[in-house]
């Protein structure tokens, strides 16, 4: 099971809490999936979301507040400070959005904000790209977790750059890395876990499914299967067919 900033989490599935048809369905999705972490957005609900936040706290799941919707370092830092007070946690999923349409992270602002927040004692989970240099900088400024995207937020496109993700995993084998955003199907989640990532974080794929509770369960199963497969050391793919029954006595070299 993944360990973030010294805390072991009971499941490699992390779920967002936005866009569900109702809080009752949200709660059921968490119950069925046994997700290990719930992410919560502060930005839009600022000032009046206490009942909703209390309900999220009541799920009994560890909470990771985020800075979703922040476009500047200042906004993100302020939102993180607010989150620390509201949820009584030093964990913060740091999002600094650089592009309004694709919601891709502003990696420059991200590094700046991460530096400020780690110096203030936050334990930062930065939402980043799979770029090795950016990830390296984030670790330099004190992040001990990385959260590269699979694809743009809410797109459901899956793992857009498998090469880049494998490369990231290989370069930082000892850093907990969570594939965040872009997961649309259980196969995407399983794929990320098969690559050896420590967890996946998703929201829209479950919340906007026709049956969010069933999809939450499917994602939990996929994450478990993907992790088990990684730990089982999968075979290497090869071009030549390799029959699993003996072919002795046949002209197999012909």
């Amino acid at each position: 099971m993944p360990v973030f900033y010294g805390t072991q989490v009971d499941s490699a599935l992390m779920l967002g809490t936005a866009q569900y048809p109702s809080p009752a369905i949200l709660a059921e999705a968490f119950r069925v999936s046994q997700a290990g972490i719930a992410t919560v957005s502060l930005r839009r609900e600022a000032g009046g979301g206490q009942v909703f936040w209390d309900m999220i706290a009541g799920l009994g799941t560890r909470i990771l507040p985020n800075t979703a919707g922040c476009h500047t370092v200042k906004e993100a830092v302020t939102t993180a400070q607010m989150a620390r007070e509201l949820f009584d946690t030093s964990w913060i999923k740091l999002e600094v959005i650089g592009h309004a349409d694709t919601l891709q992270p502003d990696v420059f602002g991200l590094v700046d904000a991460a530096r400020i927040l780690t110096s203030e004692g936050f334990e930062v989970f930065p939402y980043c790209t799979e770029d090795l240099t950016v990830c390296g900088r984030l670790l330099e400024v004190g992040c001990q977790v990385l959260m590269p995207w699979g694809a743009p937020i809410g797109s459901g496109l899956g793992l857009n750059n498998p090469y880049g993700l494998r490369s990231l995993r290989a370069h930082f084998p000892d850093v907990p890395v969570v594939v965040d955003a872009g997961i649309g199907l259980p196969s995407h989640a399983a794929g990320a876990m098969e690559m050896g990532f420590d967890a996946v974080l998703l929201n829209t794929a479950v919340a906007k499914a026709g049956d969010p509770v069933s999809m939450a369960r499917a994602m939990a199963l996929a994450v478990e299967a993907g992790r088990a497969a990684f730990e089982a050391d999968p075979m290497e793919p090869r071009d030549m067919a390799a029959p699993s029954t003996p072919v002795l006595g046949k002209a197999f070299l012909a």
Binding site: E45, G47, G49, Q50, F52
Partner: peptide
């Protein structure tokens, strides 16, 4: 024109 849906009682 409407309408936003925000988890807030503000």
């Amino acid at each position: 024109l409407g309408a936003t849906m925000i988890e807030s009682d503000r």
